[in-house]
Structure formats: C-alpha cells, structure tokens
Design a protein around this nucleic acid. Structure first.
Lengths: 242, 242
DNA sequence: ACGCTAGGTGTACGGCGTACACCCGTCAAG
DNA sequence: CTTGACGGGTGTACGCCGTACACCTAGCGT
C-alpha cells in the first residue's frame, strides 16, 4: 500500500488497472481517441509508464477486448443447446452494446487470446453437448461468424460525424427524389423498416429484432441439418460436379 | 496531354489515378502501410498534392472501397433470384479476395457512397423481383450482413506477423497439451476441419466451403420464410409475451 | 548496509495527417 | 500580345502518434 497521506499519492498501476482505464476511456471518447499518451494522462502517469504493463498498443487493445469478453455471462447450464447458445450470444451482445467500440475492436483483431479461445470453446462445447458432430459444430461456428460476438454489421447505420447542417428544404427534397430514382429498392426496404417514418433512414430500424431474426434463422437452419444427420462429406459429394 | 518528351514528364494526377494507385499500394503492402505520404511517393508527387483530388484520408479509403465494388460483376439477368444473389455475392467475394485489405476497409467504414448504395440496391432488387416483400427483403439484407460483401469473419485465421520462431519441440508439445486441456472443443472442431492434419490450425480450413455453407443456409432459410408468407408483424406478435 | 528489482520518468526519433501560403503553367478575354 | 484568373503541384510547419533507451528511485531480501 506504500505510505500515503503525504498529499495525493495515487494507487500504483497494474495491468488490470491499465486495461480497465482503457475500456473506460474508450467508452467515453471512442476507440480512435484512445492513445497511449491520452490513457497515461488519464491515469496521471507518464506515457512510457504504461509499457511496464502492456507490451504495446496492440496488446492494450487485445486486453481491452478481453475485459469486455469477461463481461459475457455464461448461461444457465440446464438450458438445452439452442436456448443456451441464444442466451450466451445475447449476453455477449449486451456487453458489446455497453462498449460501442468493442465491435470494431473485435472485428479488427485476430489475436486468439485465452479469453477469446475460452469463449469460442464454451460455444462450441454447447453445440457438442447438444448432439452436434464436431464437423457440423465447426461449420456452424463459421456460419454464425460475427453473430457469435453479439453483433452483426449494420448495413444502414447512421453516417458518423456532423454533415452539412441544413441543406435547405427544396434541396433536401431534390436529393430525396434523386435517391428514390437511383436506389428504389433501398428506399423501399427503408420504408418497410420504419413503417413509413422516413426521418433519418436507418434510425428507426430495430437492430435487436434484426439480430435475433438472423440468429434464429441460423439456429433453426442448423437444427434441421443436425436432425438430418448432415455431414460435410455428404454435402461436398452431393454438390461435386460429375 | 501537355508537352511530353522533355525527359520524364509524368502523367497528371486525377482522382481516378490516385484511387487506383491506393488500391495497388494496399494490395502490395497492406492497408496499414498506406499513408498519404507513402502513396504520394508512389505517385512521384509531394504528399499535399493528393489533397487536390481527395478531401482527406478517409475519403481516400472510401474511394478505394468504391474501386473494389466497381469490380463486382452483375449476374446474368435470366437467373432466378437465389442463383442471382448467389452469383453476385460470390463475385463480390472474388473481388474482395483479390484485395485482402478490402474486407477490413469495408467493415470499418460506414459511409454510404453511391457505389455502396448501388450494390445494395441491386441485391435488394433481386430479392424483390424474386417475390420477396419489402419487409422480408429488409430483414434478409440484415441477416446476410457481411456475407453480402463476399466475406465473413474468419474465426480461426492465422495470427499475423512473425512470432517466436522456434519454440523448441518439447515446449511446443507442452503447449499443445495445455491447449487440448483448456480448449477441448476448439481443438476438436479444428481437427474436424483439417481431417487430422493439425499443422497450423486454421490453415487447412476451406474458407470457400464455409462461406457457401453459411450463405446457402441463409438463402434456403429465407426461401422457406418467403414460401410461408412470413411477415415481421406476424413474427413479432407470435413471439410477444402475453 | 547493500545491491537487486519493479516500476515510474525524461528525452528523443521518425512517422503520421493536414493547414496554409506559395508558385507556375495554361488558357480565355481584352 | 498582354493579362489575370485558376487548377494543380510544392514547401514548410504544427501537433499528434507509438515507442526505444537510458535513467532514477523506493522498497525489499539478505
């Protein structure tokens, strides 16, 4: 604990503290604004001090991802495989939504840290326990892809940052008309998504619903394959050209 | 064309030329090594010259993505919807595989450039023409997510960069043993994927097969929904808690 | 009392994106 | 033929970044 009391003696750094501060900082200012210097400042410390706890910035980011993964909650072990996977994935989703930078961070890094492997192992184990062959489990993990992490790319999400603030009503209207002509189908599905309310296309889209839609589509699909005793060998030969 | 001949007079820059050079450079050295300075050097020009053709680096990257999208081939218009989507997506995949940095770039930017919108519109239009409601089309687009771009996250891909080069045979074996104990299911599916050849887990995984597996799973799933006259309204109310 | 070590410090380097002032070749108008 | 505007390449400079390397110091086991 070191002698305190002589003014403002700060708690000692540690890898743990550095990573947590990194997560907190990214939550506040976005991942792009997280730099070693900024993080050090936040911790009341000189930049190089961080390097005693993380090897470099890449490892910092990996560690921050691990912190988020640590927030995933394991599901009730009594659930059947489908419910268990669903719960686990939706818990992952909640964690990722709490840390909006995490999606990007998880997508961009491919380091297989113990936390990453542990999570993948848990998901794979759930399929195996549910009667999936290792073969099918493997393909299912691939098919779920990002969805395992609780997110999927948002096709229609808001353009970031401020744009031209007020494009004048008639210009706005002209722009919409051109859009309708050039991208009729995009417009159409945007309308379907918002039930007619077009203020900010994409803003009215229920991401959670979309996510569960796709997740269940995949889970139901693979359930069917499992029931049918699907194997990749059979699939390959069925498809193989004469 | 300006007078040439007096030695090595270079062709004038243009937005087109800048973007193409950016693509070529990224192909060669990876997206991380593409900087305004490096790109300028490649073009035999001072860095600031680029800013006469692209507003900033972000716009450069958006433009480079557009170049890749421009390589996507539209499918034969006589194909039915499923085959048409499949062809279009697999063509997108080929383009993205030609430019390995593109996946990352597409994932990380959310700008809706005309090229992006045009592509989305074409895909959505194919579903609509195939008898999908705008509603279902919307959800299907979401469900396909990244897959529309011809890629999906590679769960198991190689760690990048060189690591500790030779970890000594017995240490290697100890490491594998620990791995097997800690991540049994990951190991199991890795074995299934490589049919027993564990040299470089993940190296032996047939990405193309995985991709088509997931794509067809989704396409067949949504085909079923379409046949059943699925609507999101019905789905929501069927699931809504009493 | 002594030296080891873990951990925080200070300085410095090379690279980045890009703001801003400049300059020069081309070409239309006078 | 002169002129002046303008599109596009140049040069300099600023403030950020990650991090190598040498250093210092407090606390501890001996």
């Amino acid at each position: 604990m070191a002698q305190q009391g002589d003014g403002v003696r700060r708690a000692p750094l540690s890898r743990e503290r550095v990573l947590r501060a990194g997560v907190a900082l990214a939550d506040e200012v976005g991942i792009a604004a997280v730099s070693m210097r900024r993080l050090a400042q936040e911790l009341g410390v000189v930049p190089m001090a961080l390097y005693k706890h993380v090897a470099n910035k890449d490892e910092l980011l990996d560690g921050m991802v691990d912190v988020v993964i640590g927030e995933f909650e394991p599901p009730d072990p009594d659930l059947d495989w489908k419910a268990a996977v669903r719960r686990r994935v939706l818990s992952a989703r909640r964690a990722v939504l709490r840390h909006p930078w995490a999606r990007q961070a998880i997508e961009s890094r491919t380091r297989r840290t113990p936390a990453v492997l542990g999570y993948m192992d848990a998901v794979a184990g759930t399929f195996r326990a549910g009667g999936f062959s290792a073969d099918l489990t493997h393909h299912v993990m691939h098919a779920l892809g990002n969805r395992i992490w609780g997110f999927s790319p948002e096709l229609f999400d808001e353009p970031r940052g401020a744009e031209s603030p007020a494009p004048s009503p008639e210009e706005q209207q002209a722009r919409e008309a051109e859009f309708a002509q050039r991208y009729p189908h995009v417009l159409e599905i945007a309308v379907a998504a918002t039930q007619g309310d077009l203020s900010g296309v994409g803003g009215g889209c229920d991401e959670q619903f979309e996510f569960e839609f796709a997740l269940d589509l995949l889970l139901d699909g693979v359930d069917r394959l499992r029931e049918q005793g699907w194997t990749s060998r059979a699939a390959r030969s069925a498809v193989a050209p004469g």
